[in-house]
Design a protein around this nucleic acid. Structure first.
Lengths: 261, 261
DNA sequence: TAGTGGTCTAGACCACTTC
DNA sequence: AAGTGGTCTAGACCACTAA
């Protein structure tokens, strides 16, 4: 009848006990967990087994370990709320036309979101990109890959794709990092006469690849959210396709819409 | 200088090799991986180490293991696309008024989404619920918890909260499973004169709790997406607050909106 | 019954952090 | 130097699956 093991596996039991301590607040965020050797002795198991218990808690995202230091209750990340407002015109529209020689914006733009790297290359469009931009598969498109950071820690990647004719000669496809600067990509497109009007976003979540774990400095048990974004003009023509990979624990996405008929 | 280990750890090496086989398509979805004992022998390591390598691949969501049978390359799930259309009026509006005596809808409604269980109870509102519904913290609200299934496998949970005055006496708070039936919750609210008009959704991703892992039959390395939804009438009054937990790999969320000013 | 994954003990060495 | 997490070997037993 019962599908459950009669007695909890030792590693599970240890994890359950620690989780209870955490949930009850007796081990608050930032608190140090007992050393592996203590846990092993207390439960009469080997260090391997105690270590496995910690592994379970890491996978759940409840605990982080610092090699050589200890295991700690994970502290909640400051969460950034991503709503349609982040694309608002007043955030990127520059009043003076073609003012992109002025890099290094001084005020709040850098604080809000400064990117670390910008890699631009001309590549062959894959299926998704081709479909989104309305070009043939294998056609040349510009790829602009960035890693976004906040307070020095990477938060997400953002890779944009453009039709070459749309962006040739613009700061968007200039190798120099950060040169898109003031106003960013949308302003540059606007300067080209390509006015962003509508955005479609597709969101999905998965576990990171090993590369992403390194790049985004993800701790064990942290999923990523993959965002696919298509930006269109008022006439429906797509002018940018972008793929982002976000550390899940640092964001919440927010959307509001009317119920359709 | 180099921060990388000179030689890859054995468990990492095995995982990397297997991942390469999978990525290259030499181990296609559904293919059986070599038995642990074979891997151990081939690499000159113990079964423990080979097992750890499998664990890494499981965490990445690339591999699933079936106890007693073997380890297999994970097959991609059929993905369901969730757009605003799923809330469209024509999907739930019933032409004949107050037709909720007719349970067990016979045609497509059940195929699309049939729920397994419905637990209704009167509980004290927590902070989120109170804020969303505009009631005091601790005030009584109806909680209606469901587990949604598709083709017999659970896909997500959905727990709705209502102001008691809004739903008292309606099928929504009837214990009998499935009785909301035809048209579902929005139709019942409409029958009460509470017409859903606008929806706000907040999405975030995280690793599942152990309970959720059992409930949604999640395999190792599968994250969940938590959806918070507030449904409002045209005058802005909230009539439902709902929280859902989705198996991440089975869904993609899709939103389209105009760029704000 | 044979094959296979899951977990555990016992003991060892290493890598990193902290003092 | 002492403390702590990470990984590994060697060997064992158990639980589940499939023929």
């Amino acid at each position: 009848m019962s599908n459950e093991p009669r007695i909890s596996l030792p590693s599970r039991q240890i994890a359950d006990d620690l989780r209870a301590e955490i949930d009850a607040g007796r081990l608050p965020p930032g608190a140090k967990l007992p050393p592996l050797r203590d846990l092993a002795e207390r439960y009469g198991v080997t260090r391997n087994t105690a270590n496995k218990a910690l592994g379970l808690l890491q996978m759940e995202g409840l605990v982080v370990t610092r090699h050589g230091s200890g295991a700690y209750v994970r502290e909640p990340h400051p969460i950034r709320r991503l709503g349609p407002d982040r694309y608002a015109r007043h955030r990127w529209q520059v009043t003076t036309v073609t003012a992109h020689a002025d890099d290094r914006p001084n005020s709040e733009t850098t604080q809000q979101q400064g990117y670390q790297t910008q890699e631009v290359s001309l590549i062959a469009a894959d299926g998704h990109t081709a479909a989104a931009l309305g070009v043939d598969i294998g056609a040349s498109v510009y790829e602009r890959a960035r890693v976004m950071t906040r307070d020095g820690i990477p938060t997400h990647t953002m890779t944009s794709y453009y039709r070459p004719a749309d962006v040739e000669g613009t700061p968007l496809v200039d190798q120099s990092p950060g040169i898109a600067g003031r106003g960013g990509g949308f302003q540059v497109l606007t300067d080209q006469g390509l006015i962003p009007h509508e955005i479609s976003e597709d969101l999905s979540a998965r576990m990171p690849t090993t590369e992403e774990t390194l790049l985004l400095e993800l701790s064990a048990g942290e999923p990523v959210v993959e965002v696919h974004r298509v930006t269109r003009m008022a006439d429906g023509r797509a002018i940018e396709y972008a793929r982002g990979v976000h550390a899940a624990s640092r964001f919440v996405w927010s959307y509001t819409f009317d119920i359709p008929d």
